[in-house]
Design a binder for these strands. Structure first.
Length: 490
RNA sequence: GCCCUCAUCGUCUAGCGGUUAGGACACAUCCCUUUCAAGGAUGCGGCAGGGGUUCGAUUCCCCUUGAGGGCGCCA
């Protein structure tokens, strides 16, 4: 397709990377990889009050967890296009240069109204249900008037001078043709009084200077786009292609926020979701194939993704489906992969203490045994912990349900000598023993299996009983049955 | 108040004038089974409303309604 695809994800470091941002990053990344293009990470830190290094770190970490590697950006500044932090670019005078150019060409002008004056005009208009757009008064100031305002000590912002008439047409890859009347747009600020560019301006300058071919972003930016296209035109540049993604909402259909659950990507990592499930799930939130395929391999997703097939309507983030998908990926893993993922999760979240003292070889065997049970990595410890405890914790409902049966005591007592004498303590042999044991005593299988299971694990649910016994070994198996008899049947 | 966008099962979605409106999650039932899962089968459930256009509209157009976004010296 396009031989020179260059796309970017441009977050502002004012908080953690949230689900919506991650989806935007993912779609950019998919598009870049699919077209052998370049994926750029640009940090838009022009909000000096709210930008933090902590946020930058969290964003980078989130991207890494998801496997969204960037070709240019923080840590990868080895190209002609850097730097990739806007405040650094500002320090190089990049934005000032184009502000000067716009002023010289009559496309921009200094405005001496203070933030307070503008804000009160805005509030007043809103209260009177009028359009709160800036009136453009400062555009008409003569050089003398400007000099006088300056002399009064008033600092100026720079505003783009919006043509009062005409239409602006946007051809969006996802949404098609959209028209905006210039008259509905006002003279927006492109540079703040402190010399820092505003979002709409910095974004345009950088996208152009970085040779961005496609701007793929959330549709909360749709209304910004006509302003930005005006800027491209005023600067004599060709705009990139635009693709506006629909928004991601919470379960009640309102904007995704904390009260809907986790919004930060890293919280899902901490909860034990597999990153590949998050990628797969997010890819389907706003995009689909013609056959509604659900699960995609890594390369398959890159190959099949299509910007043109992205949805125009917003979607609701459904954590239940994400859970299902995480389970799908968990189950598909080979034993070594699953173990590596589990240890990786413990390490990344600082929870190694959970398995301290546990026999590593046994951990790995028991995990495999319980693989079908877990959807999240975080569920694993609770599934296998009973293997590693000295003293079995008996769940009251298990005791109630299984030990209060008339045959439980007989079954357990009789099993001790049989298990001690059993020549082969393999799962297969154990199963043969248990079935024969039941038949010989005219018990149902369940009357034998259930008490044994509870005696060994303390719970009514768990892995295959005989594999469980095999892994515990004869000595531990017998020890637990004896302890159990003492504790509940003495 | 002005501007922009969107609208198919509860949720994610397929559909691009004629379909028994398909798939996935969730839910329910059954099967499998030593338990719990996993797996298999079946079921439940949808084109927001009203006008057009058309032989025929989920599909094209308009209106209504609803939802979301923007109108910051935030991004």
């Amino acid at each position: 397709m396009n031989q020179s695809v260059r796309v970017r994800f441009a977050p502002s470091p004012t908080g953690y990377l949230h689900i919506g941002g991650a989806r935007t990053a993912l779609f950019n990344w998919l598009f870049a990889r699919q077209n052998n293009g370049v994926f750029i990470l640009r940090i838009e830190d022009t909000d000096e009050a709210r930008s933090t290094q902590e946020s930058v770190d969290a964003i980078l970490q989130s991207m890494q967890w998801l496997g969204l590697d960037w070709d240019e950006g923080p840590g990868r500044e080895n190209s002609q296009y850097g730097p990739y932090f806007q405040m650094q670019r500002k320090d190089q005078g990049i934005y000032q240069k184009y502000v000067d150019q716009l002023i010289a060409a009559g496309h921009a002008y200094p405005c001496y109204c203070t933030a307070e004056e503008v804000e009160s005009m805005r509030q007043k208009a809103l209260a009177e249900k009028r359009n709160p757009k800036y009136d453009g008064a400062c555009a008409c100031l003569t050089p003398e008037q400007r000099a006088r305002k300056s002399a009064e000590g008033r600092s100026a912002v720079i505003r783009y001078k919006m043509p009062g008439e005409g239409k602006l047409v946007l051809e969006d890859i996802i949404r098609g043709r959209i028209e905006f009347d210039n008259s509905s747009l006002d003279d927006f600020v492109i540079m703040k009084a402190n010399g820092v560019p505003t979002y709409n301006f910095a974004c345009v300058v950088d996208d152009h200077l970085m040779d961005i071919s496609h701007v793929i972003r959330g549709d909360d930016h749709l209304s910004n786009t006509p302003r930005q296209i005006h800027l491209y035109q005023a600067l004599g540049w060709t705009p990139p292609q635009f693709a506006h993604l629909s928004m991601i909402m919470g379960a009640d259909g309102t904007r995704l926020s904390k009260r809907h659950g986790h919004t930060a990507v890293l919280e899902y990592r901490n909860d034990g979701y597999l990153p590949e499930s998050m990628v797969n799930y997010l890819s389907l939130l706003g995009w689909s194939t013609e056959d509604s395929q659900q699960l995609f391999g890594h390369d398959e997703l890159i190959q099949k993704f299509a910007l043109e097939r992205c949805s125009k309507s917003s979607g609701i983030f459904d954590v239940v489906k994400l859970q299902w998908m995480s389970g799908e990926y968990l189950r598909k893993k080979s034993a070594p992969e699953l173990i590596a993922a589990f240890y990786g999760w413990l390490k990344a979240t600082g929870r190694e203490v959970i398995i301290s003292g546990w026999d590593k070889a046994l951990v790995e065997k028991t995990i495999t045994l319980e693989q079908d049970k877990a959807k999240l990595l975080s569920e694993i410890p609770g599934l296998i912990d009973f293997f590693f405890t000295e003293k079995v914790e008996y769940k009251s409902e298990a005791v109630e349900k299984v030990f209060k049966t008339p045959t439980a005591k007989l079954v357990l007592e009789g099993s001790i000598s049989k298990l001690t004498e059993l020549s082969d303590f393999s799962a297969q042999s154990l199963e043969a023993f248990a079935r024969a044991y039941a038949i010989d005593n005219a018990w149902k299988n369940g009357q034998v299996f259930h008490p044994l299971r509870v005696a060994l694990s303390g719970r009514t649910q768990g892995p295959s009983l005989f594999h469980m016994m095999e892994l515990m070994g004869r000595e531990e198996t017998v020890r637990r049955i004896k302890n159990c008899l003492t504790q509940f049947f003495a």
